[in-house]
Amino acid sequence: MLAFSDVELAAVGLSLRIALVAVGFVLPPAILVAWLLARCRFPGKSLVDGIVHLPLVLPPVVVGYLLLLLFGVRGPLGAWLDQAFGIRLVFTAQGAAVATAVMVFPLMVRAVRLSVEALDPGLDEAARTLGAGTLDRFFTISLPLMLPGVLSGAIVAFAASLGEFGAVVTFASNVPGETQTLPLAIYAATQTPGGEDVAARLAGVSLALALAGLLLSEVLARRVRRMLGR
């Protein structure tokens, strides 16, 4: 029962890869947007705040559908990507990563934003009087002190990426070996007569990954705390 088929292994590998890519791509813009929302005042801030949080409150299927409209081969962005770079997102692994990234973006922004708001502006002033410019201060003072929030945001986002279903299935479909991630494979198995074993094995893998993620986040959090001298 523990022998994995190729299709199952591919699903596990794909899930991990998509989650990593999604979190990696989302991290920098999430930090930027969190900083803007926490620190800056600009016209249309509420609108930006709303759009960022939309994936959290919309049904994932609707997010997938909107992505189809935008990035479909005839969609405004999809057509441009296709013509300019030959990139097609619909029904591809990249597409699955994009759908996942959009879904976890608000989770990340929320976690990072809390850590931005927890920063002591006094330290920033101190760094200014010591001759540090804006970017210098961001990378040497603010970012290191935000690290716990960034890290916990990244781990929550990674875990959520592994479980993303609705948006991925709508936007990237369910192609074994191409866009069939773990939850999609489990769903497919439960819809197949005699697929209970497969479903159980993959569910076990999901459970193990989730636990490993939690453990890792605990270990990292402790390290970071020590590094920050708390």
């Binding site: 006094g122 002033e125 101190a126 760094a127 009087t129 003072i141 002190l145 590094m227 001298g229 708390r230």
Partner: peptide, 20 residues
Amino acid sequence: VPPERRRIGYVFQDARLFPH
């Protein structure tokens, strides 16, 4: 002149050391 280019040292009441 922005503070980072004034070359004026500032010792704050609450020290404000960088904890990391």
